[in-house]
Amino acid sequence: MLDIRNVSLSFGALKVLNNASFSLGKGEVLGLIGPNGAGKTSMMNVITGIHRPQTGEIRLGGIDITTSKPHEIAERGLRRTFQTSLLCSGMSVVENVMLGLEPQPAYGFWGALVGSPKVRQWEEEARQKSMEMLDWMGMAAFADRPGSSLSFGQQRLVEIARALVSRPSVLLLDEPAVGLTAPRVDELAEKIVSIRTEFGTSILLIEHVMQLVFAACSRVVVMNAGEVIADGDPKTVTADPRVVESYLGRGYYAES
Protein backbone atom coordinates (compact mmCIF):
# COMPACT_ATOMS: atom_id res chain seq x y z
CA MET A 1 0.00 0.00 0.00
CA LEU A 2 2.62 2.42 1.16
CA ASP A 3 6.26 2.24 0.11
CA ILE A 4 8.96 4.39 1.64
CA ARG A 5 12.24 4.16 -0.22
CA ASN A 6 15.56 5.68 0.84
CA VAL A 7 13.99 8.74 2.39
CA SER A 8 16.27 11.38 3.90
CA LEU A 9 15.26 14.60 5.59
CA SER A 10 17.44 17.29 7.15
CA PHE A 11 16.62 20.48 9.00
CA GLY A 12 19.68 22.54 8.24
CA ALA A 13 22.59 20.55 9.58
CA LEU A 14 20.36 18.20 11.57
CA LYS A 15 19.82 14.92 9.76
CA VAL A 16 16.46 13.67 10.95
CA LEU A 17 15.83 10.84 8.51
CA ASN A 18 18.70 8.94 6.99
CA ASN A 19 18.02 6.77 3.98
CA ALA A 20 15.07 5.09 5.64
CA SER A 21 13.01 2.47 3.82
CA PHE A 22 10.11 0.24 4.76
CA SER A 23 6.71 -0.62 3.41
CA LEU A 24 3.22 -1.12 4.72
CA GLY A 25 1.28 -3.98 3.18
CA LYS A 26 -2.41 -4.00 2.36
CA GLY A 27 -4.51 -4.62 5.44
CA GLU A 28 -1.47 -4.71 7.67
CA VAL A 29 -1.05 -3.12 11.09
CA LEU A 30 2.58 -2.06 11.24
CA GLY A 31 4.19 -0.73 14.40
CA LEU A 32 6.83 1.99 14.15
CA ILE A 33 8.86 2.21 17.33
CA GLY A 34 12.07 3.83 18.47
CA PRO A 35 13.45 6.17 21.10
CA ASN A 36 12.32 9.78 21.37
CA GLY A 37 13.83 11.88 18.63
CA ALA A 38 14.39 8.85 16.40
CA GLY A 39 12.47 10.56 13.62
CA LYS A 40 9.18 8.66 13.76
CA THR A 41 6.97 11.73 13.71
CA SER A 42 9.18 13.26 11.05
CA MET A 43 8.68 10.13 8.98
CA MET A 44 4.94 10.58 9.30
CA ASN A 45 5.26 14.24 8.33
CA VAL A 46 7.21 13.28 5.25
CA ILE A 47 4.65 10.67 4.26
CA THR A 48 1.77 13.12 4.64
CA GLY A 49 3.48 15.88 2.70
CA ILE A 50 4.06 18.26 5.60
CA HIS A 51 7.79 18.05 5.03
CA ARG A 52 9.37 17.33 1.70
CA PRO A 53 12.26 14.86 1.89
CA GLN A 54 15.58 15.82 0.30
CA THR A 55 15.96 12.41 -1.26
CA GLY A 56 13.91 9.28 -1.63
CA GLU A 57 10.48 8.36 -2.83
CA ILE A 58 7.11 7.63 -1.28
CA ARG A 59 4.45 5.66 -3.10
CA LEU A 60 0.85 5.22 -2.10
CA GLY A 61 -0.85 2.36 -3.92
CA GLY A 62 1.84 2.55 -6.57
CA ILE A 63 1.43 6.31 -7.13
CA ASP A 64 4.33 8.64 -6.36
CA ILE A 65 3.22 11.12 -3.68
CA THR A 66 6.65 12.41 -2.69
CA THR A 67 5.97 15.94 -3.88
CA SER A 68 2.20 16.03 -3.37
CA LYS A 69 0.60 18.56 -1.06
CA PRO A 70 -0.87 17.35 2.24
CA HIS A 71 -4.47 17.79 1.14
CA GLU A 72 -3.83 15.93 -2.11
CA ILE A 73 -2.38 13.02 -0.19
CA ALA A 74 -5.37 13.06 2.15
CA GLU A 75 -7.69 12.98 -0.83
CA ARG A 76 -5.87 9.93 -2.15
CA GLY A 77 -7.02 8.06 0.92
CA LEU A 78 -4.22 8.51 3.43
CA ARG A 79 -5.23 10.01 6.76
CA ARG A 80 -3.42 10.51 10.03
CA THR A 81 -3.65 11.67 13.60
CA PHE A 82 -1.11 13.87 15.35
CA GLN A 83 1.08 13.31 18.35
CA THR A 84 0.15 16.56 20.06
CA SER A 85 -2.59 18.19 18.07
CA LEU A 86 -5.94 19.11 19.46
CA LEU A 87 -9.36 19.28 17.90
CA CYS A 88 -10.50 22.57 16.44
CA SER A 89 -11.84 24.42 19.45
CA GLY A 90 -14.25 26.49 17.41
CA MET A 91 -16.26 23.50 16.27
CA SER A 92 -18.32 20.86 17.96
CA VAL A 93 -17.03 17.32 18.10
CA VAL A 94 -19.25 16.14 15.28
CA GLU A 95 -18.24 19.08 13.11
CA ASN A 96 -14.64 18.17 13.72
CA VAL A 97 -15.40 14.70 12.42
CA MET A 98 -17.32 16.12 9.45
CA LEU A 99 -14.14 17.94 8.50
CA GLY A 100 -12.77 14.54 7.57
CA LEU A 101 -15.40 14.32 4.82
CA GLU A 102 -14.82 17.76 3.36
CA PRO A 103 -12.48 17.49 0.41
CA GLN A 104 -15.13 17.31 -2.28
CA PRO A 105 -18.65 17.97 -1.09
CA ALA A 106 -21.19 17.49 -3.85
CA TYR A 107 -21.86 21.23 -3.92
CA GLY A 108 -19.61 24.07 -4.94
CA PHE A 109 -19.01 27.55 -3.60
CA TRP A 110 -22.10 29.06 -5.25
CA GLY A 111 -24.30 26.22 -4.08
CA ALA A 112 -23.09 26.83 -0.53
CA LEU A 113 -23.70 30.57 -0.86
CA VAL A 114 -27.33 30.22 -1.89
CA GLY A 115 -27.99 27.11 0.20
CA SER A 116 -29.14 24.78 -2.57
CA PRO A 117 -31.08 21.62 -1.63
CA LYS A 118 -27.97 19.62 -2.47
CA VAL A 119 -26.18 21.39 0.36
CA ARG A 120 -28.76 20.39 2.91
CA GLN A 121 -28.77 16.83 1.69
CA TRP A 122 -24.98 16.55 1.72
CA GLU A 123 -24.73 18.13 5.13
CA GLU A 124 -27.31 15.78 6.57
CA GLU A 125 -25.58 12.76 5.13
CA ALA A 126 -22.20 13.98 6.32
CA ARG A 127 -23.57 14.51 9.80
CA GLN A 128 -25.14 11.07 9.75
CA LYS A 129 -21.91 9.41 8.67
CA SER A 130 -19.92 11.32 11.25
CA MET A 131 -22.34 10.40 14.01
CA GLU A 132 -22.05 6.75 13.05
CA MET A 133 -18.29 7.03 13.11
CA LEU A 134 -18.38 8.70 16.53
CA ASP A 135 -20.73 6.04 17.75
CA TRP A 136 -18.34 3.38 16.53
CA MET A 137 -15.54 5.03 18.51
CA GLY A 138 -17.85 5.21 21.52
CA MET A 139 -17.87 9.00 21.48
CA ALA A 140 -21.37 9.74 20.21
CA ALA A 141 -22.45 11.22 23.54
CA PHE A 142 -20.03 14.09 23.04
CA ALA A 143 -21.10 14.95 19.52
CA ASP A 144 -22.35 18.46 20.25
CA ARG A 145 -19.72 19.50 22.76
CA PRO A 146 -17.00 21.95 21.77
CA GLY A 147 -13.90 20.12 20.62
CA SER A 148 -11.74 21.74 23.24
CA SER A 149 -13.93 20.70 26.18
CA LEU A 150 -12.90 17.06 25.89
CA SER A 151 -9.99 15.52 27.71
CA PHE A 152 -6.81 14.90 25.80
CA GLY A 153 -7.50 11.18 25.49
CA GLN A 154 -11.05 11.78 24.29
CA GLN A 155 -9.84 14.25 21.69
CA ARG A 156 -7.53 11.51 20.46
CA LEU A 157 -10.42 9.16 19.89
CA VAL A 158 -12.37 11.84 18.05
CA GLU A 159 -9.32 12.54 15.94
CA ILE A 160 -9.23 8.89 14.96
CA ALA A 161 -12.91 9.08 14.06
CA ARG A 162 -12.17 12.12 11.90
CA ALA A 163 -9.35 10.35 10.15
CA LEU A 164 -11.52 7.28 9.55
CA VAL A 165 -14.80 8.82 8.52
CA SER A 166 -13.76 9.07 4.89
CA ARG A 167 -12.78 5.37 4.94
CA PRO A 168 -9.14 5.90 4.01
CA SER A 169 -7.08 3.06 2.63
CA VAL A 170 -4.16 3.97 4.90
CA LEU A 171 -4.27 5.35 8.43
CA LEU A 172 -1.27 6.69 10.32
CA LEU A 173 -1.56 6.97 14.10
CA ASP A 174 1.05 8.94 16.05
CA GLU A 175 1.20 7.73 19.65
CA PRO A 176 -2.55 7.34 20.15
CA ALA A 177 -2.13 5.78 23.60
CA VAL A 178 -0.38 8.74 25.24
CA GLY A 179 -2.11 9.50 28.50
CA LEU A 180 -4.46 6.53 28.46
CA THR A 181 -4.76 4.16 31.39
CA ALA A 182 -4.00 0.48 30.90
CA PRO A 183 -7.62 -0.70 30.44
CA ARG A 184 -8.16 2.10 27.93
CA VAL A 185 -5.08 1.03 26.05
CA ASP A 186 -6.54 -2.46 25.71
CA GLU A 187 -9.76 -1.00 24.35
CA LEU A 188 -7.79 1.07 21.88
CA ALA A 189 -5.87 -2.01 20.74
CA GLU A 190 -9.15 -3.78 20.07
CA LYS A 191 -10.40 -0.78 18.13
CA ILE A 192 -7.27 -0.64 16.02
CA VAL A 193 -7.56 -4.30 15.18
CA SER A 194 -11.21 -3.90 14.26
CA ILE A 195 -10.42 -0.87 12.08
CA ARG A 196 -8.38 -3.24 10.03
CA THR A 197 -10.89 -6.08 9.98
CA GLU A 198 -14.02 -3.94 9.46
CA PHE A 199 -12.75 -1.29 7.06
CA GLY A 200 -9.74 -3.07 5.56
CA THR A 201 -7.59 -0.07 6.40
CA SER A 202 -3.82 -0.48 6.46
CA ILE A 203 -2.42 1.07 9.62
CA LEU A 204 0.94 2.48 10.56
CA LEU A 205 1.11 2.86 14.32
CA ILE A 206 3.75 4.88 16.14
CA GLU A 207 3.70 3.86 19.76
CA HIS A 208 5.79 3.70 22.89
CA VAL A 209 3.33 1.62 24.85
CA MET A 210 4.58 -1.88 24.02
CA GLN A 211 1.38 -3.39 25.37
CA LEU A 212 -0.45 -1.76 22.46
CA VAL A 213 2.19 -2.64 19.92
CA PHE A 214 2.09 -6.31 20.83
CA ALA A 215 -1.68 -6.41 20.91
CA ALA A 216 -2.27 -4.68 17.58
CA CYS A 217 0.73 -5.08 15.30
CA SER A 218 1.62 -7.99 13.11
CA ARG A 219 4.97 -6.47 12.19
CA VAL A 220 7.25 -3.83 13.69
CA VAL A 221 9.77 -1.39 12.23
CA VAL A 222 12.34 0.08 14.60
CA MET A 223 13.97 3.45 14.00
CA ASN A 224 16.94 5.00 15.70
CA ALA A 225 18.63 8.28 14.85
CA GLY A 226 16.77 8.55 11.56
CA GLU A 227 17.60 5.06 10.37
CA VAL A 228 15.53 1.91 10.17
CA ILE A 229 17.47 -0.57 12.30
CA ALA A 230 15.09 -3.51 12.38
CA ASP A 231 12.02 -4.75 10.57
CA GLY A 232 10.14 -7.97 11.36
CA ASP A 233 7.58 -9.63 13.60
CA PRO A 234 7.30 -8.15 17.09
CA LYS A 235 8.84 -11.07 18.96
CA THR A 236 11.94 -11.32 16.79
CA VAL A 237 12.47 -7.59 16.61
CA THR A 238 12.23 -6.98 20.31
CA ALA A 239 14.75 -9.69 20.87
CA ASP A 240 17.22 -8.08 18.47
CA PRO A 241 20.22 -6.90 20.53
CA ARG A 242 20.52 -3.66 18.57
CA VAL A 243 16.92 -2.77 19.33
CA VAL A 244 17.33 -3.63 22.96
CA GLU A 245 20.48 -1.56 23.11
CA SER A 246 19.06 1.56 21.48
CA TYR A 247 15.49 1.56 22.60
CA LEU A 248 14.10 -0.98 24.98
CA GLY A 249 17.04 -0.83 27.34
CA ARG A 250 18.95 -3.63 29.00
CA GLY A 251 16.34 -3.93 31.68
CA TYR A 252 13.81 -5.04 29.12
CA TYR A 253 16.14 -7.78 27.97
CA ALA A 254 16.59 -9.07 31.48
CA GLU A 255 12.85 -9.07 32.23
CA SER A 256 11.75 -11.20 29.28
Binding site: A74, C88, S166
Partner: peptide
Protein backbone atom coordinates in the same frame (compact mmCIF):
# COMPACT_ATOMS: atom_id res chain seq x y z
CA UNK B 1 -7.53 26.48 14.69
CA UNK B 2 -5.03 24.06 13.22
CA UNK B 3 -4.03 24.45 9.62
CA UNK B 4 -1.67 21.49 9.58
CA UNK B 5 -4.35 19.13 10.85
CA UNK B 6 -6.79 20.68 8.40
CA UNK B 7 -4.48 19.97 5.48
CA UNK B 8 -3.93 16.42 6.68
CA UNK B 9 -7.69 15.97 6.60
CA UNK B 10 -7.89 17.03 3.00
CA UNK B 11 -8.58 20.76 3.39
CA UNK B 12 -6.91 22.73 0.63
Amino acid sequence: DNSVAAAANGVN
